[in-house]
Design a binder for these strands. Structure first.
Lengths: 231, 231
DNA sequence: TGTACATCAGTGAACGCGCGTTCACTGATGTAC
DNA sequence: TGTACATCAGTGAACGCGCGTTCACTGATGTAC
């Protein structure tokens, strides 16, 4: 940062973009060669080392690049939803199963749509990230799992704050959130890879989430909570 | 098969075993070299070509090797469950949500336990297979997806035959089964990789399944079936 | 404003290495007659 | 029961190639004084 701060390093950007492009074709960052990458970026192989310590370093740079704006978008949306939520009468719409369905439905829908919007805007980063989740680099796996854990924590906080599942305690909500986040990421991947219908994918994801909400609340009401199942 | 049929090809076995061993460490079949593989198996690099056309071929051989006995085990268990099921009074235990909980619970539990048993017996094949699900080989991806689809179809058939979700039609049950199968595979992977508590993993998987059952049935009863959500 | 120096992003040549694959060969086992 | 032949699983040497990485260098930009 000794140079001017607002001029992005050209070569670095070029390498990251080339990595995404190639990883789409070769299906993994770890399958890329440094020479191959430089070739794609139109640079000398050696230039890679000017910007990155190695492939993991490049992967982390890409993750940082994509995750930050997504998390911010979701956070803004959540704040907006919270404000809107404050105007609806609390607990009045609590249904027979212990779910605030009247509020859970639109919030779920909105979250899923926003998520799919974002995914559709960054298809390459998303696909590559999902593949790297089980990839060979321990560093990238850890980083990506942390990303998912962060999203799950955000979601759990929202559910509690908006009081969507008033009968379930925080720990159970967190577990549910993890399941849901994983499912949303997986659904997004399928949406992008199979190029299937956007609306259908969203709807199925929403259905999945609502089923988990209702199922968890129902079981709780019957006294068959998640504690019974251990974990 | 011109030679004796009961003497398994020694080198072929050795290469498949070596591939599993190495893929555990390197995290992907596709990251293995042929020379590396032969070295691990104590064979000449060239011998690989006596048995396999390429890496995909070897991968398919491993998949065939593992999937067949698992599917047979599950089929046997399902038959046993069906016979046992015939002795329980049909529809008598249908609960308020439209789930035959009294039968769905034990069947779910048994299925999950059996699955985890099998997974624990073939940890390497399982882990490698899950990783290859998003791997670079189109051939292996297709094969593994077909495996999961087969399992889902089996499960859907069982649910219908045992009449566990009497209010849901076949198409919805199939979708549910796909979600559940994916979730069981994912849970198995986490169980194996993180070496976390067996009983806790099983219980969480069971809870997940039951929640989806109850959630789907409840929504159906309220007239908010999956059709409403599209897909 | 000039000047000297440091840093930074980039180049190009060179290294040694392990790789996939091929070729020609071997010995053991199975098959036909 | 022999004998001739085919097949099969394995060996070992050799090929050419692309790879990761290092070294020494360049020119542009920023910084200190």
């Amino acid at each position: 940062m000794t140079k001017s701060n607002n001029v992005a390093a050209f070569g670095k950007r070029a390498l990251m973009a080339a990595a995404l492009r190639l990883a789409m074709l070769r299906r993994s960052l770890s399958l890329l060669g440094i020479r191959e990458l430089a070739r794609e970026a139109g640079l000398n192989p050696n230039t890679f080392y000017r910007h990155f310590k190695g492939m993991d370093d490049l992967g982390l740079a890409i993750i940082r690049d994509v995750v930050e704006p997504l998390r911010n978008s979701l956070r803004e949306m959540r704040i907006a939803a919270a404000i809107a939520g404050d105007n609806t009468p609390a607990l009045e719409s609590l249904d027979a199963y212990g779910v605030e369905l009247a509020r859970a439905l639109p919030v779920t829908r909105q979250t899923v749509r926003l998520f799919f919007d974002f995914v559709a805007e960054h298809p390459q980063a998303f696909i590559v990230g999902m593949r790297e989740l089980n990839g060979p680099s321990e560093v990238l796996r850890a980083a990506l799992q942390q990303v998912m854990e962060d999203f799950a924590a955000d979601m759990a906080e929202d559910i509690v704050r908006l009081n969507l599942l008033p009968t379930l305690d925080r720990a159970v909500v967190l577990k549910l959130s993890r399941m849901i986040i994983r499912q949303m990421f997986q659904a997004s991947l399928e949406f992008l890879e199979h190029g299937c219908d956007r609306a259908a994918c969203c709807s199925q994801a929403e259905a999945h989430i609502i089923m988990l909400f209702v199922g968890a609340a129902s079981l709780k009401k019957k006294g068959v909570g998640m504690e019974t199942f251990g974990g």
